[in-house]
Design a protein around this nucleic acid. Structure first.
Lengths: 239, 239
DNA sequence: GAGTCAACGATATTCCAAATTTTTTCAACT
DNA sequence: AGTTGAAAAAATTTGGAATATCGTTGACTC
């Protein structure tokens, strides 16, 4: 089982707790879309759904609040974080700012190991199908993981643990929107081509070129969602 | 009572829960230094300290993990996040990157209300003493709050809720180090002069000047700590 | 004497039920 | 008909007891 082992998720050094298990499942259900944006996350409902007590459920929910996948209000409980066009725009805008820095720093600090890691990550990604099913698009957790790993490999040499962790956090938030975009554009968008171009530019130490390609890559998601007739509301936070 | 009402802290629309109250007190104790970096945060110890049950304590701890003020490991429990020179350097470096963007964007979007808010925030800050006591330096929570509010007022017009929230988060993390620096440099450092210069540059739409002054302001903390003979370890994460 | 393993103590985790708060229902009233 | 208010219902929050896990100590074996 390929558990998440990035800086954002808690480390799994030793034994697994129920809270961590619930956290993983809940996280996948939210990102995969099984639990819709804005959906109420009542204690009893989750206790029933995952067959556990209230304590680990709250524990998991609190961790997800940190990742902005769940929102919380005192005495009102938890909801799946809403999505909205304005939020997507803010997310992409922020990613453009942050990831340009990470990318330029990483290229500036480039070395052989970094280069090798990128190539390996790209290879891993290219071996995994975009969709979990043959026909139409279906969420593929493994592809998502490898996709994130690929982009993170490029940023890995930026030299700042904090900046890297923030890139990771933003990528997590983006994954829900990427779901929507994938469902719309599948199988017309050839992401592998885009990834290869970004990789090549980075490896050639062409910072300006890599940044240009990467930002275009980020902005594509928003363009796809916008052109598709907008299946998401303009604004939604707490229903 | 001046509770925190920024985007990072949970909103207090209605009633206050014990968990929120513990969160506030624990937070203050960590930032103020009453609970030292690396200190173990055992359930029983906290239950006794704040005279509450285990549930709200865990709730509060989980929220603080999100702010990186507390660290957690499965089956190992919670600790106050460690501090270290390398972490401080990463923090300042990241703040320089992020806050330069926020500052430039905010100036680019400047309007009259923004300008007014900055002037008011500066005035509020200048009316609060740096130290809680007459003699020597002592943590003054109210000054910390107004100081943060002042800098945030400058960033407020950056147009990105996410970027703003991240600035806030980084400022929180920095407050512990600022404690150390203040204890060392008090009363020789005249922060009010630095703040006024930043404010004036921002209000005059002098982006380059404001950035230069602001980054110098950020880097001063690290310089003070470094020159002082380093009362903090080079590296510390999980004791 | 060094290493292994079992029992023990301490701590973290989990469940559950009581207490508190919010939301809903519904009837009386303007 | 719409509004107000109280009572009922549902949900969240909390405390404490039960359970599981980790680290340590000390005896035992090689």
């Amino acid at each position: 089982m390929a558990t998440k082992t990035t800086s954002v998720a808690p480390s799994r050094t030793g034994g697994t707790t129920i809270a961590t298990s619930v956290y993983d499942r809940l996280r996948r259900d939210i990102i995969g879309g099984a639990l819709a944006p804005g959906h109420k996350l009542g204690s009893n409902m989750l206790r029933e759904r995952y067959k556990v007590g209230i304590s680990p459920v709250r524990e998991a929910l609190n961790r997800l609040v940190a990742e902005k996948l769940v929102c919380f209000q005192d005495q009102k409980g938890f909801h799946v974080a809403g999505i909205g066009l304005d939020d997507l725009e803010d997310l992409v805008r922020t990613r453009c700012w942050i990831e340009e820095i990470a990318l330029r720093q990483s290229i500036a600090n480039s070395d052989d190991k970094w280069e090798d890691d990128i190539v390996v990550a790209f290879h891993h990604l290219s071996r995994e199908p975009r969709s979990a099913t043959r026909e139409g698009y279906a969420f593929n957790a493994e592809w998502e993981e490898r996709h994130r790993a690929f982009h993170m490999a490029i940023f890995a040499n930026c030299g700042s643990p904090r900046l890297l962790a923030y890139c990771d956090l933003l990528a997590d938030q983006a994954s829900r929107y990427r779901q929507l975009a994938a469902a719309i554009s599948y199988p017309d968008r050839h992401e592998s081509t885009e990834h290869k171009a970004i990789m090549d530019a980075a490896i050639n130490r062409d910072a300006d070129g890599a940044v240009k390609l990467h930002l275009a890559h980020l902005r594509d998601t928003i363009a796809i969602v916008k052109q598709s007739g907008m299946p998401i509301p303009a604004h939604q936070v707490a229903p």
